[in-house]
């Protein structure tokens, strides 16, 4: 049976038939590792993040890496053309990806990307929003909840000031942006279920 890991972070979604499931999984791991490392580097540059306990840093990164990557790579989802460009540079049609078994998750990713892109965030706003997403105090397993909450609150304050400053006439823009966070959580859960199904298969 062919194994297809049609993830935009996978360099080789359509695998060679002679590869073992273990080899396919290892190739996939090598494909997404640089992106994960970049998320860690990003986290290190969030003021205050490195002051959190190492365990809390790891917990936040483990729980939030997918969401950070989703925000970062939302532009890979071309809603108008109904295509996704993978990190390999190859562009796949939505139809082809659905044929690879990526139906429901992909539709929700497109929907999220469209909503996020419609806010037309500046690079600075997007970076701060990503920091807020990563420093989420409600992730399970946080040891020093107070420290994470304080950091998240300060990041949200700065984000609110920044968003208000760039669009003073649109008071709802900040609210709309924060409402993307539950959408990301839903996507994260769907993605986790997908990953688990591959492992079980």
């Amino acid at each position: 049976k062919d194994i297809v890991l049609a993830c935009p972070m996978n360099m080789f979604p359509q695998t060679e038939p002679n590869k073992t499931p273990q080899e396919i999984w290892e190739d996939f791991s090598l494909s997404f590792t640089p992106a994960v490392r970049e998320v860690v580097e990003f986290a290190k540059h969030i003021p205050g993040f490195s002051a959190l306990s190492e365990n809390d840093q790891v917990t936040l990164l483990k729980a939030g890496t997918f969401e950070v990557l989703m925000v970062r790579f939302a532009s890979l989802f071309n809603v108008k053309e109904q295509t996704v460009t993978f990190i390999s540079g190859t562009t796949y049609s939505l139809e082809a990806l659905k044929g690879m078994g990526m139906g429901g998750l992909l539709d929700t990713m497109f929907e999220f990307s469209e909503k996020l892109n419609s806010l037309e965030l500046t690079a600075e706003e997007l970076g701060l929003f990503t920091a807020v997403v990563l420093v989420s105090a409600d992730r399970s397993g946080i040891e020093n909840l107070n420290s994470v909450e304080l950091l998240q609150e300060s990041l949200i304050r700065v984000l609110r000031a920044l968003v208000s400053k760039s669009n003073p006439c649109d008071a709802s823009r900040f609210t709309k942006l924060l409402l993307k966070m539950p959408d990301l959580r839903t996507l994260n859960n769907m993605h986790s279920e997908k990953l688990l199904s591959f492992r079980i298969d």
Binding site: V36, R37, S50, V58, L61
Partner: peptide, 27 residues
């Protein structure tokens, strides 16, 4: 419901990347 992040080996990648920073930090 097992942990997909562990399945991906994500914790290992994250810990190594975080430690990389400590090694590079000037004394």
């Amino acid at each position: 419901f097992s942990d997909p992040a562990s399945n991906l080996g994500l914790e290992d990648i994250i810990r190594k990347a975080l430690m990389g920073n400590l090694e590079e930090r000037p004394e």
